[in-house]
Design a protein around this nucleic acid. Structure first.
Length: 587
RNA sequence: GCACUCGUAGUUCAACUGGAUAGAAUAUCGGAUUUCGGCUCCGAGGGUUAGGGGUUCGAAUCCUCUCGAGUGCACCA
């Protein structure tokens, strides 16, 4: 029996007995660390029924439950706050049970399937910092869902066709000289990115020239020969032109190879990959369906719309007058495809918050269409990553490249580790792995510790800082524990034991950990896990500093401390696993 | 112009979703090791939670206005 449920039960009983009030919504919160106690009950809401001062009301309720529960050691009252403290035995049993049964996570997702779409890159240029946030976030939330029992499908929808890739194709055809990733010594995605940039440069120049000849700006953009060639290329692609198709395949494959290595290094992967070139025609039957049932309507020019003004939004086009589909049509189609394929209970899109409106509309349309799965749609909307100088702008070359960034953090990890010189006896292969674990850990943690919904600042200097709220700090804590355990005998401790307040604090944090995971899952927010693990590491370091472990003379206490340390280490490793970050045994 | 999001120590972020004296990290300054890994630990200063008004036992959190920042409002994706 969970102590919290008993506590709620007894408190309800007290309130019924004392004030004749039943079926109230009793809730406890963690006691603020500045006060004594483990859990706190706030009595203010009950004052009008008790008709007594806050202090007296809290005292009354406290007396009642104190007499009914052995596990309560004491309670104290500050104003309207009833702080309850559990017995040491209770906390020791919590640790013992944790040691016996491992981390017990409430299985809130059991027998439920969830499809998480993340990453979803365009194949015209390499990944950048913003994509890293997306990937790391998407992967982590999948780990978290998995931990709470969901059947998770990691899904990527690759945006491999359209006008953007045609731009690279046109540029490559014109100026590429059959260059290959090998001949250029570039990753495939970087090579294609080079041509995309090249296209844009020539295109801008052409538009500028046209304008200087007196052509109107919009017209210049239309009339640019490069743009016309690109549209022509797209047309040919859609008509299945063999030559264009061959070129497209070649360039895209290079990009995939490049992405593959970036994904590998980042440690992310997918169970199901959709390619837009296969799915972009989907959704048209559904549009027809909606038109037949009167949910959509046709305008005079033949374009098809939905009226969302009753929901406070606008009219939204779902099919062009020429019969071709728009972005949202494809999304309707792929949502349906996902459902046909997976019959999922929930489906999540990890996409930046600039598309908030789009996903609101998508969900509304699916609801209007009567799709049973519409309620399961969730847009995990994350904020953009800013630089100290402001927004990342590809035009101004301030975009932080993913591969370069990873190189940089790993190099920093190497430098810092060498300065410390604690890695004697490790092979160069082991060292290289270690630098990856530390460098990428630092980067991922930096991105994950911030609430996913919020926009964040990426400060290059701070991200390679290894002190404070960082992955290396936590990894260091882990290696300390690992080192400790290498030197320790196998141990058991027995009750009772008297323990220090820091030890109790550690047990409380360990005890709260499973709830952190379910909360992170419910809020689609890995940062909750990151912050909990950080707090745990911080508390452990304090414990480690203030108390001796291996040198403790009382063998029962020593065993207890070793067991406690071991459990902390396991929890750090587990939490970091949920974030997609590894921990080293030595560093 | 309309819609949405945001504004918290110098800086980067927290605050259990309405609870107690708003916490960390970083930077600055000052301390700690004959002892298990000093990438550690302890301490100090630093805040009118952008500003005004309201709701109530109680507001960083909810409502409202003002100011400031960002995003979205394509027969682009």
């Amino acid at each position: 029996m969970n102590i919290l449920t008993t506590l709620v039960e007894k408190t309800q009983e007290a309130i019924t007995q004392l004030y004749g009030l039943s079926d109230t919504n009793i809730s406890f919160e963690q006691t603020n660390s500045k006060f004594d106690g483990d859990l706190t009950f706030v009595v203010f809401p009950y004052l009008k029924h008790s008709k007594k001062r806050p202090e007296d009301t809290a005292k009354e309720i406290g007396d009642y439950i104190f007499n009914k529960m052995k596990a309560i050691k004491s309670f104290n009252v500050v104003k309207g706050f009833l702080n309850i403290e559990f017995s040491d035995d209770y906390w020791l049993n919590v640790l013992q049970s944790r040691i016996d049964h491992g981390i017990q996570i409430p299985e809130i997702g059991v027998n439920k399937k969830i499809v998480v779409e993340y990453s979803s890159p365009n194949t015209n240029k390499p990944l950048h910092l913003g994509h890293i946030r997306n990937n790391v976030l998407g992967f982590s939330i999948c780990q978290i869902f998995d931990a709470v029992g969901y059947d998770v499908v990691k899904n990527n929808l690759v945006n491999d066709r359209g006008i953007h890739i045609c731009k690279s194709m046109v540029a490559y055809e014109k100026w590429g000289n059959n260059e290959t990733p090998q001949s250029a010594g570039l990753k495939g995605d970087h090579l294609i990115g080079k041509y995309y940039v090249m296209f844009d440069q020539y295109y801008q120049k052409e538009v500028k020239d046209l304008i200087s000849k007196g052509v109107d700006k919009d017209e210049a953009k239309e009339k640019s020969s490069l743009m016309m060639e690109t549209r022509n290329m797209l047309q040919k692609w859609e008509n299945g032109d063999q030559e264009v198709f061959t070129l497209w395949t070649k360039l895209n494959n290079w990009v995939y190879e490049g992405f593959e290595s970036t994904y590998n290094r980042l440690g992310v992967n997918f169970d199901k990959i959709y390619y837009e070139s296969n799915t972009y025609l989907l959704g048209k039957e559904i549009v027809q369906e909606g038109l037949d049932s009167g949910i959509f309507f046709k305008k005079e020019d033949g374009s098809i719309w939905i009226d969302l003004t009753p929901e406070g939004l606008d009219e939204k086009i779902v099919q062009r007058s020429d019969g071709t589909s728009v972005y949202i049509t494809q999304d309707i189609g792929t949502a349906d495809l996902k459902y046909q394929e997976f019959k999922m209970d929930k489906f999540v899109y990890v996409v930046g918050n600039e598309q908030d409106y789009h996903f609101k509309v998508l969900q509304l349309i699916l609801k209007r269409l009567g799709k049973s799965y519409a309620d399961g749609l969730y847009h995990l909307s994350y904020g953009m990553v800013d630089l100290p100088e402001g927004k990342m702008k590809s035009r101004e070359g301030t975009v932080v490249d993913a591969d370069e960034l990873m190189d940089k953090v790993v190099a920093t990890a190497k430098k810092q580790t060498e300065e410390l010189g604690k890695t004697d006896g490790m092979s160069s292969k082991e060292l290289d792995e270690l630098y990856e674990v530390l460098g990428l850990g630092a980067l991922k943690y930096y991105l994950l510790k911030v609430d996913a919904k919020k926009r964040m600042m990426y400060d290059p200097k701070e991200s390679i800082d290894f002190q404070g709220n960082t992955a290396p700090f936590i990894q260091y804590t882990y290696t300390r524990i690992a080192s400790l355990l290498r030197a320790a005998d196998k141990v058991n401790f027995s009750l009772p034991i008297t323990f220090h307040s820091i030890e109790k604090e550690l047990i409380k944090q360990l005890n709260a950990y499973p709830e952190v995971i379910t909360s992170a899952a419910n809020n689609y927010n890995p940062s909750e896990v990151a912050n909990a693990i950080y707090d745990l590491a911080k508390t452990f370091n304090k414990f480690y500093h203030e108390l001796t472990i291996l040198g403790e003379l009382d063998s029962n206490t020593r065993s207890f401390r070793i067991s406690l340390s071991k459990t902390v280490g396991e929890t750090i490793k587990h939490g970091f696993g949920l974030l997609g970050i590894q921990v080293p045994e030595r560093m």
